[in-house]
Every structure is written in C-alpha cells, then in structure tokens.
Amino acid sequence: MEKRGLNLTLKIWRQENAKTKGAFVTYPIQNISPDCSFLEMLDQLNEQLVDKIERPICFDHDCREGICGMCSLYINGRPHGNDTGITTCQLHMRRFKDGETIWIEPWRSKAFPIIKDLVVDRSAFDKVIQAGGYTSVNTGGAPDGNAIPIKKENADLAMDAAACIGCGACVAACKNGAAMLFVSAKVSQFALLPQGRVEAKERVSNMVREMDQLGFGNCTNTKACEAECPKEIKISNIARMNREYLISALQK
C-alpha cells in the first residue's frame, strides 16, 4: 500500500544568538514520509533551505538513537514532542496528522542560554557534574565485578537513575526552570552504591550548591520533569536527594 506523504506547516524559532531577539518563522514542507524521524524531517527542510541559498536551521543532534542526550526541541508544547519516554530523534512523523501546524522551540530557561536558533548551551549541566558527579576514591586495579555484594534493589535503582542522558528536558518542562531531576539522578546513581557512598555527603552538598549558583529554579513538585523525561527518571530520586542533602547538612 502506498503511504501518503504529510504536508505540514512548521513554525520554527529562529534567533541569531543569545543577545539578539528571536522570532518564529513559518516554513511549509511537503511530502514528508510518516516513517521518517522528526530530525530527518528537519534535515529535509534544511536541504531545501540550502538549495534556496538560505541559512539552514541550527538544531542539536548526535547519535540519533536516543542515548546521547544531544537532541532537544520543544515541540507543540512538550519537550521531545508528543510521546512519552522518547527523545526527539525517536519521535516519528507518523505521530503527526497531514496538514498539522508544528511549533518548534528551543529549551527556554535562564540557565540554558540560546546559542543559535534551536541550539541551547547546556554546559550548566557539565558544571554541576564537575562539582561532584564522579568518584575520586582510589580503586586500584580492576577488581572482581562482584567483590562487593550489592542489593539487587539498589543496583536496579542506581541503574534507573544512571539512565539519565542529561538532555535537559526536565529543566525545559519545569515551570520553575529547576534542574532537580537531573541533579538528583546524578546524586542517586552514586548514593545507592557502596563505591559512591564514600563521598556521598560532600557530593550532594557541592552539586546542590552549584545547581543553585547556576541560576536553576526551585522544585515545587509539579512532576512535569518526570512526565517529560525521555528516560522516565522518577521524582523519587528528588526525594532521595532532599534526604541526602538534609542529612549531610545535619552531620556537617
């Protein structure tokens, strides 16, 4: 059976850099295969723009298989588009109807300034990681993988937290521009395991301090982050971080 291509109207945010004002520009696009991904659709638009000697639209992407955390885009009012548990590169055009208007915006948050068009600077996340998202204890040569017994439940919870790809959808979805889901996932993946436990207190207080200083907002438990996280990270991580932080503050 022949599949009909989609004809769409794209409203895309275009902005020269962080200092200039941006605006939506309308681009009609024809005959898009429902089988292609959202980013492939944008690739096709960019090829058309290049053919017309216009500046192509800048957007972030890398692995295109949902594991690198590079692609972003706030599509029709939702980070990574209208689907759950996926990144923008995993969003398929079959999720859209023929004739639909699609609004494409960058992540909007004070801590993520726009670099160009749909590309935002997410290095604030890197700074949070630099503040404590690592272990610095000496471990010697490669030990036996099972030398330290770890409870299955904790291993699973740590793995779930470590699934965070740092894409920033949590910040983009949050009405407060808070980074609590990201930071709590990074705190949790260490706090749940014996190797990370050693430096847990310093880690949580340093990472939270860095998060606050970078201008991220305060969590009001709206759960928007959890609803939009492509890796479905749970807000129970935020509760864990609150707990870890308060206990570490009391023990200082």
């Binding site: 409203k11 909007r108 948050s109 808070a178 907002g217 709206t222 609803a227 939009e228």
Partner: peptide, 28 residues
Amino acid sequence: MLTLQNMKARGSDRYAITGKSNISWAGK
C-alpha cells in the same frame, strides 16, 4: 521568595505553547 526566584530562572522568553504535559493543575 521562591516564586520570584523561579520566575527569574524560567527567563523572559516564554514558550508559545504550554500546558501540554500531563501534570496536576493544583501543582502548577
């Protein structure tokens, strides 16, 4: 105090389309 800080963290550029996430009205 928290609300003022949160508004600042959100930035001055607002999304054209919002409220599509499946979250509780009271929480927002």
